[in-house]
């Protein structure tokens, strides 16, 4: 167990990412994430947090450096798809498929990618929808759900692929305050079950309750990697302090 935990499941090495010629979004970022670890990335907007997250499942191609997930380098379309099936992702704007029912949202990728039978896929979907607390909405369309419900369906959709890693890209920042908790509760459950999670979020409650490590990014670089306790009590860097001062009031 201890031996396993020493092998990182995500290895990011000296990654650079440019958008056009102007924007240098990532400036040599390196990070390792270990199995069953919950890593939360925080930082001001434009600091490259989301870009880093999206480089992990290759929604953004890196310009230089390497990203290796679960021992697989993503150099060919085929290997990229294989990695993506192992890495679930939850988006800020949910990105549910509006033309499919809740059930089909959770089923479609299982059928297409995992080649599961409809019956098998639906059984898995029902289990997961129960787990995220909305089994009664299977026949609804995404537009008929509240934001919190949509985000929970999106989590179920990602989990249906039985991923080894879950990425969360500001999962609660498009939600009304009263819906944030229902989504965070699902995430906390996942964390307590031992899911490896990389989360971009400013929910300090979640950081306190679930994070093993916190990464503070600014201007395309990792400024500080620390634990939640140290982050709140003794941040090392001046910029971290300033940022925390702004978001914690």
């Amino acid at each position: 167990m201890a031996e396993q935990e020493r092998d990182p499941i995500i290895v990011i090495k000296d990654v650079h990412k440019h958008f056009g010629t102007e924007v240098h979004a990532l400036r040599g970022v390196s990070l390792e994430v270990y199995p069953q670890e919950v890593v939360v990335i925080i930082g001001p907007s434009g600091s490259g947090k989301s870009t880093l997250l999206r480089c992990i499942n290759r929604l953004e191609a890196v310009n230089s450096g390497s990203v290796v997930v679960d021992g697989m380098a993503m150099d060919r379309p085929r290997s990229i798809n294989r990695v993506r099936a192992e890495v679930g992702m939850v988006f800020q704007l949910f990105n549910l498929f509006p033309h499919l029912t809740v059930m089909d949202n959770v089923v479609v990728a299982q059928r297409v990618v995992r080649k599961r039978s409809r019956r098998e896929a639906e059984a898995i979907a029902i289990d997961l929808l129960r787990k995220v607390g909305i089994p009664e909405k299977v026949d609804a369309y995404p537009t008929q759900l509240s934001g919190g419900q949509q985000q929970r369906v999106a989590i179920a959709r990602a989990l249906a692929m039985q991923p080894k890693i879950m990425l969360f890209d500001e999962p609660t920042s498009a939600l009304d305050p009263e819906m944030i908790k229902e989504v965070l509760d699902v995430m906390l459950d996942l964390a307590s079950e031992g899911m490896t999670m990389v989360v971009v979020s400013h929910e300090m409650g979640f950081v306190r309750a679930a994070a093993d490590r916190v990464v503070f990014m600014d201007n395309g670089s990792i400024v500080e990697v620390t634990t939640p306790e140290l982050l709140f009590t003794a941040p090392q860097q001046e910029r971290t302090k300033r940022f925390l001062g702004q978001i914690l009031h």
């Binding site: 929604l59 379309p77 890495v87 992702m89 990105n95 498929f97 509006p98 990728a109 297409v112 990618v113």
Partner: peptide, 24 residues
Amino acid sequence: GQMEAARSLGMSYFQSMRHVILPQ
């Protein structure tokens, strides 16, 4: 975001087109 969501689930470009983008 629709294409990204489909791709993030491991669907290929054409699978994403066929099952997610084109129906919409």
